[in-house]
């Protein structure tokens, strides 16, 4: 029997398993255990959550392998970790450590101002952020097995995630209604691979899982993204920067499963303690906007 590893089907198939679930940012093994106990489908291991990266400034890089190994050993659920945009050596290191998914993330300081990682070369699957459909399709063209909205990480403000979700899903609906002879021009305008535009026209969805991320802080935020037709949710600073992470984590997990059931949403939204303090986008300078990183 010839077994194959690292195929596109194994990478995108793994991504399918995260649908209807919540992936939580954690910075210690202890937080990873709390996230697993709250029902997270995976944890994202990093040294500082985006809210702290914003506050501290400086260059944000891949986490130290010691802390990633600590988290790999602490939980039985999949572990993701972030590399800087274009930093394929950080990605080689994470693959060697046995990380289950790599996020090539705008939350870290970009390592390359023109190019992203060529992701087909890796056995481990990648997730990438996108603000619009063109960006999503370029990342899929490079081999991304999962797409997430960029939103604006570390703000606790869902408005950018909503903007990106509406932009991606709106463009998909529009491509579905265009006649075949217009699709090459659509691909040109989107700066996206033609074959992927054809796929969208035929199937009305991305060829990979499409998650929501960037500013999700409450169960209602998470359910909002699910009702907009996203496949699942990443919560960054929103859980462990709040007053009662365990309770809030659990509530967001329940809200993503029962996103269409307002009675359950009302119940899980009740009495969660302090949410993370949010940032209004109009108080952020352009250079503080993480979503604008990536090309």
């Amino acid at each position: 029997m010839e077994a194959q590893q690292g195929t596109l089907r194994i990478k995108t198939g793994f991504a399918e398993m995260f649908k209807g679930g919540v992936i939580m940012d954690v910075v210690t093994p202890e937080q990873a255990r709390i996230a697993e106990a709250a029902g997270a489908t995976a944890v994202m291991a990093l040294e500082r959550v985006p809210a702290d990266i914003r506050k501290d400034g400086g260059v944000a890089r891949m986490s130290d392998p010691t802390m990633i190994k600590g988290i790999l050993a602490a939980v039985s659920i999949p572990v993701m970790a972030k590399v800087r945009i274009g930093h394929f050596v950080e990605a080689q290191i994470l693959q060697a450590l046995g990380v289950d998914f790599i996020d090539e993330s705008e939350v870290l300081t970009p390592a390359d101002e023109a190019y992203h990682v060529e992701k087909h070369a890796f056995k481990v699957p990648f997730v990438n952020g996108a603000k619009d459909l063109g960006e999503a399709l370029r990342r899929i063209g490079e081999g991304a097995a999962m797409i997430r909205t960029k939103g604006e990480a570390g703000t606790g403000n869902v408005v950018e995630a909503v903007r990106h979700a509406r932009s991606i899903l709106g463009s998909i609906r529009s491509i579905q209604s265009r006649p075949l002879e217009e699709l090459m021009a659509v691909a040109r305008d989107l700066q996206a691979p033609y074959e992927l535009v054809l796929y969208i026209h035929e199937h009305g969805k991305l060829p990979v899982v499409n998650m929501a991320a960037g500013g999700i802080a409450t169960p209602a935020d998470a359910a909002l993204m699910m009702q907009l037709r996203m496949d699942g949710v990443f919560v960054g600073s929103g859980v462990f920067k709040s007053g009662d992470p365990e309770k809030r984590g659990k509530a967001i997990v329940r809200a993503v499963t029962h996103f269409n059931n307002p009675d359950i949403l009302a119940e899980v939204s009740t009495d969660l303690g302090e949410p993370m303090v949010g940032i209004n986008l109009d108080t952020l300078e352009i250079e503080q906007r993480m979503a604008l990183r990536g090309w």
Binding site: A3, P78, K123
Partner: peptide
Amino acid sequence: RQVDSFEAP
């Protein structure tokens, strides 16, 4: 882990 995942007939 995921890097060990595989498909086979």
